[in-house]
């Protein structure tokens, strides 16, 4: 409690700094500023091109006021159906594959070799960008929704298995142990000890992933993997901004509806 008040009076007070050492602090500030300057310097902007583009940009904004759903209604419908189909199929297949991998990747119920294999599958799936995967799969399987479907399923596996494995690792051990103490087999243990605790969470995550898969399916078409993205890409290529605006509005609406529904289901399950 010793405090020399008199010596403190009249001294300025400064807030303690986030980084204590002044040398490190200044080095970081200088480095940050240097980076920002270098980064901005490296951006080349063709202002004349931007200026010419402004008119086009304005047209696009106007297109949102009068979107054209009509003239390419058929293409939009086909694209949207294809996106929906890819989304649903890939989510279902993704979940089906995620469950065993997720179980295998949970340290507390799996054996080491299985654990390592499952974890590396998850790591590969998470590290690869969906678009990159889609490009490779289009090269292998040809254009169309099959490539998109496989891409999304693969991405779903990385996402769901990881969260599922973490969920199982976190869950109450006691309950699973109580079931084991009755002498249950591995399958019975899963059905009675783990399943009831993890399923609500799994349903929630799946709904969330369905939502993500739809958003992703909207871009896969740009690289030829099917879905509404292809329709959108065509519209942009032809500078049909009113059709493009219509497609974007459809995507936004679909995402909002899906988000609302998945939110509702998640709230109900948990």
């Amino acid at each position: 409690m010793e405090f020399a008040l008199e010596s403190r009076i009249g001294q300025p007070w400064k807030r303690p700094k986030f980084i204590k050492s002044p040398v490190v602090r200044w080095l970081m500030i200088v480095a940050a500023i240097a980076y920002l300057i270098a980064a901005m310097y490296s951006i080349e902007v063709n202002w004349a091109r931007v200026y010419r583009g402004l008119d086009r940009g304005w047209q696009f904004v106007l297109a949102f006021v009068s979107p054209d759903f009509g003239s390419r209604a058929h293409d939009i419908r086909v694209g949207l159906t294809e996106s929906a189909v890819m989304t649903i199929a890939s989510t279902v297949v993704g979940i089906a594959i995620s469950i065993p991998i997720g179980l295998g990747a949970a340290r507390n119920i799996s054996i080491l070799p299985v654990y390592l294999t499952c974890r590396s599958i998850i790591a590969v799936s998470r590290a690869l960008n969906e678009i990159v995967v889609a490009i490779l799969l289009v090269a292998i399987f040809g254009f169309g929704p099959l490539a998109g479907f496989i891409t999304l399923s693969f991405a779903t596996i990385g996402f769901l298995s990881k969260l599922l494995a973490e969920e199982i690792e976190d869950m109450e051990k006691v309950q699973a142990e109580a079931v084991r103490s009755t002498g249950a087999s591995w399958l019975q243990r899963y059905v009675y000890g783990i399943h009831p605790q993890v399923v609500p969470r799994l349903v929630g995550l799946s709904m969330y992933r369905l939502d993500i898969n739809f958003r992703e399916s909207a871009v896969l078409g740009i690289v030829g993997a099917g879905g509404i993205g292809a329709t959108l890409n065509t519209a942009f290529d032809r500078y049909e901004f009113d059709t493009a605006a219509a497609i974007l509005l459809v995507i936004i609406a679909a995402v909002m509806v899906l988000e609302y529904v998945s939110g509702m289901i998640r709230a109900k399950v948990q």
């Binding site: 080349e44 931007v50 583009g53 995507i251 936004i252």
Partner: peptide, 23 residues
Amino acid sequence: STRSINSLIWALLLVKIIGPGVM
């Protein structure tokens, strides 16, 4: 509206408007 649309689509659009490039 900004969240529902993937950055690749935004890029597609912006390339048409302000031209290709980092910007």
